[in-house]
Write a protein that binds this DNA or RNA. Structure first.
Lengths: 259, 259
DNA sequence: TAGTGGTCTAGACCACATC
DNA sequence: ATGTGGTCTAGACCACTAG
């Protein structure tokens, strides 16, 4: 049997079991890659039902501590987060992955010309007459593991001549390599739980926190060249930045724009 | 009874029910603040067990679409995210909240002098002899709703004379107001599912995606004045930034430091 | 075929809110 | 006292993996 222990604040059984298992893993009683007892056996070990064991395991999965494989078992997952920079230079995912020792590649899910929504028209500053844009969805891999889904929209003038390259490579690098300047960007970072569809794309559990990096990137003359977002597994990714404050601004504050 | 529908990819029942409920809410069949049928009644409506209804509701809760209150019911939750800027000026939470129409305040959970861990010594660049630091935990409220937990560590020389003010006000504003310059910062953003303890502090469901804003802030002469992190509810908060790329840097890339 | 995780059910008991 | 959500149980059936 398992209890929440003396002096500890009252907490659900499945939380106590999560912590117990986490401790055992941290102490090395189960090492990286090793298989844990089956859900049924864990239930016997802790004296709880399989349902409760499953809730405990779900907690650990969402923390990235273990992974499950249907038909095989539960395994300890050792992993470090991949860091992406928000400072200069603008987010080159492939560079960041390479620097940190991962093989990187993309798989294009779709690439097609569509009618721009009003939101896209606004973001890309399109005139109404040229409201055709290219929309792309692709998966970003690090060492054969899908870590992010990227969704981009390009003005037709940008994407049309680069259709081939954009489907095979990373967005920013492809644009840079084809002499399209990336001067500035408005970006935002937020998080939401993985939907069912996204959890399939990223081989992630439903509800896993997903980091959303949204951006509008501007080229010469403040002209938007791409807008979109990168949805990445929060257990694999982290964004870092260096901030310099200018004296004048710190006093009065600035309006905060949306992206 | 409920089915996943024709032509739709096979998906669990509770996901289908989540979507069904979300559609009904989006269509206005349940408006903001309105109470949904009870779990038991929803089970009858959809022809599924209460357990399955609960999983469906859990999905909606983590998306911030509904909130539950024990003993009362399930309610539709309309809400917009609060935006915080990563650009200049350095993240003044209180300014951002005020600008966006929220009443802001903090509640100090703890404020005490402790021995710095090696990690803190490194981050605050302390000499071994002066390894005493002040550690503070406080909750940040927007309109009486707890939206973030902030954990800070200060060098003793900084925090000692400001003990009172730091416990009552926002960190950055308190430092600024007391003539401590904030020149630059190394920051990172990541996300993880709410632990049980954190879910209590923030009145959030277990596993809700939490945004983690970590920082080391430097004053004059690159001297660290505070390090810590702000753990905020992802359904309430969003970070935005403006990036300017310098031509020289975009070509070669820069090493990516951790924080 | 046997063992594993994935989904779902029916029902119990509890804590909390309301009348 | 009643109705609500929160937790837990015992057991069923399925899909996947492996020998």
């Amino acid at each position: 049997m398992v209890s929440s222990g003396p002096g500890i604040q009252k907490q659900p059984l499945h939380v106590a079991i999560s912590q117990k298992l986490k401790e055992q893993i941290d102490l090395g009683q189960y090492s990286v890659g090793e298989q844990l007892p089956s859900e049924f056996n864990l239930g016997e070990l802790f004296g709880v039902s399989r349902t409760t064991v499953r809730r405990a395991i779900a907690n650990l999965i969402k923390q990235g501590i273990v992974v499950t494989q249907q038909g095989k078992g539960i395994f300890v997952s050792g992993r470090q987060k991949i860091r992406f920079s928000l400072s200069n230079p603008l987010m080159h995912f492939d560079q960041a992955l390479q620097q940190q020792g991962y093989a990187s590649r993309v798989k294009s899910l779709s690439f097609q010309q569509i009618n721009a929504s009003t939101e896209i028209i606004l973001k890309l500053q399109l005139s109404d007459r040229t409201s055709q844009v290219y929309r792309q969805e692709k998966i970003i891999y690090a060492d054969d593991t899908p870590i992010a889904l990227e969704i981009d929209c390009f003005p037709a003038a940008i994407a049309s001549p680069l259709a081939e390259a954009l489907q095979q490579g990373f967005t920013y690098s492809t644009l840079s390599d084809n002499n399209i300047a990336l001067k500035s960007a408005k970006v935002s970072l937020e998080s939401f739980p993985a939907t069912y569809e996204l959890s399939n794309h990223l081989a992630a559990p439903l509800g896993l926190p997903i980091l959303v990096f949204s951006y509008i990137v501007y080229g010469d003359n403040q002209q938007p060249v791409v807008c979109g977002k990168t949805l990445s597994r929060s257990d694999w990714t982290q964004y870092v930045s260096q901030i310099e404050t200018s004296e004048a601004m710190t006093k009065k504050g600035l309006p905060i724009a949306s992206v």
